[in-house]
């Protein structure tokens, strides 16, 4: 072998060996699309525009057949009050079903109400909450009977005919979004109004909000105006450290909001 041929062959072999196997694989666009469906629901909440009217909670309870009087709700609104003497008060009386019609803070069942001097209020705001429809939900992992699951379009649902009501998922949810339904005796949770969004309608809460504090979008569609807000503006999620990848994004989060 001539020296020239030896060098030439060496180059060819090295070049050939450096091509990874995956580069030669034929990519079927259909397969790629199937692996990444073009629909994935996400929620955007603007805490700046929420005034705590509670119309969303009422609409949710009406639409989804959640008992009005029972102290359970798929969605709720929290009030955060920071006083000038550096105390923080958080409450959500009746899940804000009737809004916040008193300045008094509901401390809980046995603690009664707390009057706060208006002069002492530093800042205050309202935060709507609902199921975050996490990308890797803790609640569906712990279900022992396969009754709760994530759909391909990213919504976590509960199969009422399979749920045995053990409550593992209620405990596993870091956000307290699940509760025990007093009528059906199974676990219930926000479904992003699955019966509405799959028909092209808005969820009941988005629909009822007069201030546009709640919005929904398809996060896989980058032309969606709400997706653009999530992509381009400063949004946060609750309890990121739990690693569940929540799909409800918040504008104007404070560290006290968890």
């Amino acid at each position: 072998m001539k020296r020239r041929d030896f060098l030439k062959n060496t180059m060819v072999v090295i070049a050939g060996a450096s091509v990874p196997l995956s580069a030669l694989e034929f990519i079927d666009p259909k397969e790629v699309l199937a692996a990444n469906p073009q629909l994935h629901w996400a929620f955007l909440i603007n805490t700046y525009t929420c005034v705590g009217c509670g119309f969303c909670v009422k609409a949710c309870k009406t639409e989804n057949d959640v008992p009005f009087d029972a102290n359970v709700s798929r969605t709720w609104v929290e009030r955060y009050v920071y006083t000038k003497d550096d105390r923080r008060y958080i409450d959500s009386p009746k899940a804000a079903l009737y809004g916040f019609t008193e300045a008094k803070i509901d401390l809980g069942e046995h603690l009664g109400f707390k009057d706060i001097d208006p002069e002492n209020v530093g800042k205050a705001f309202f935060v709507p909450k609902l199921c975050n429809q996490c990308e890797t939900p803790a609640c569906t992992q712990v279900c022992p009977v396969g009754a709760t699951y994530k759909t391909d379009d990213g919504v976590v649902l509960v199969d009422r005919s399979w749920c045995i009501g053990c409550g593992y998922c209620v405990m596993a949810c870091p956000f307290g979004a699940r509760y025990f339904h007093p009528v059906y005796n199974v676990v219930d949770k926000c479904t992003f109004c699955y019966h509405r969004i799959t028909k092209g309608l808005e969820t009941a809460c988005v629909n009822a909000c007069p201030f546009g504090a709640r919005k929904m979008c398809n996060i896989r569609d980058i032309n969606d105006p709400i997706t653009q807000i999530i992509l381009n503006e400063r949004v946060g999620v609750l309890k990121d450290e739990f690693g569940t990848n929540p799909q409800a994004f918040y504008i104007g989060l404070a560290s006290e909001v968890r």
């Binding site: 009406t62 396969g146 759909t151 199969d159 005919s161 309608l201 629909n207």
Partner: peptide, 23 residues
């Protein structure tokens, strides 16, 4: 891990009765 379930149940949720008009 996240979505072992009865596939028919998705239809059950899709067919819940609507209340509000929208949209």
């Amino acid at each position: 891990m996240y979505s072992f379930h009865n596939k028919d149940n998705e239809e059950v949720w899709k067919n819940q009765p609507l209340m509000y008009r929208d949209t």
